[in-house]
């Protein structure tokens, strides 16, 4: 996650520098300084940042919409929700697992809804990073954000977020995070047994 953000920043500066360096040096040094431009030739820099989104139909993933259905498209980094009567279809950007190793795909369901959850690192998280706190209570620093939806798979959740930069990026240990305002709405829409597929 940190790596992604860093590359992004460097690239933006580098590319901007390419475009503006020769132009702006003469005319507007004040603007240049304000932008903090570093000149990076394009051959040495990443040439593009791309992203893609795939449209989804619930019929391709679920037999029915009983209790509603959530599709987490980990490739497009988007969460789709269809209500049981199909009157509501929501699409939200999400965080996705940081690595393939941490990624679990398949069918599951919501087994528990938690308001203002307490975060407790899993044994594996603690193994990877022994400096993690024992737990984090509700509040802005809680990695689960303001709501958590526990899935039938142990430790896997759909939840809110502490840092907005995680949204749309590989930033989780296996969970799917969406903005707090969206998880709060989704929390009220889903029920125990709402179908979930991680794709």
């Amino acid at each position: 996650m940190k790596g992604t953000a860093l590359i992004h920043t460097v690239t933006r500066r580098g590319l901007f520098g390419l475009g503006a360096a020769s132009i702006a040096m003469i005319a507007a040094p004040a603007v240049l300084r304000a932008q903090d431009i570093t000149f990076v030739p394009p051959s040495d820099a990443k040439r593009h940042n791309i992203a893609s989104f795939r449209g989804q139909r619930w019929q391709d993933h679920f037999q029915n919409l009983r209790k509603g259905a959530i599709l987490c498209d980990l490739e497009s980094r988007a969460l789709h929700y269809w209500s049981e009567d199909e009157s509501l279809y929501l699409i939200h950007p999400s965080s996705v697992p940081m690595s393939e190793e941490l990624t679990r795909r398949g069918y599951t369901e919501i087994v528990l809804k938690r308001r203002n959850p307490t975060w407790i690192p899993t044994p594996n998280m603690r193994k990877r990073d022994p400096s993690l706190p024992q737990s984090v209570g509700p509040g802005p620093n809680n990695p689960l954000g303001s709501r958590a939806l526990n899935l039938s798979w142990q430790y896997y959740r759909i939840h809110g977020i502490d840092k907005v930069e995680k949204i749309g990026r590989p930033a989780s240990n296996g969970c799917v995070g969406i903005y707090n305002e969206y998880i709060e709405r989704l929390f009220d829409l889903v029920e125990i047994g709402t179908q979930v597929r991680l794709l």
Binding site: L15, R47, H48, I50, A51, S52, F53, E75, S76
Partner: peptide, 23 residues
């Protein structure tokens, strides 16, 4: 679907770049 690119590449290169990405 929707594809996006932030780049100095031309439209022709952008499409080639997208073609090189599985998704």
């Amino acid at each position: 679907g929707e594809l996006v690119s932030e780049t100095y590449e031309t439209e022709v290169q952008a499409i080639a770049t997208w073609m090189g990405n599985d998704l």
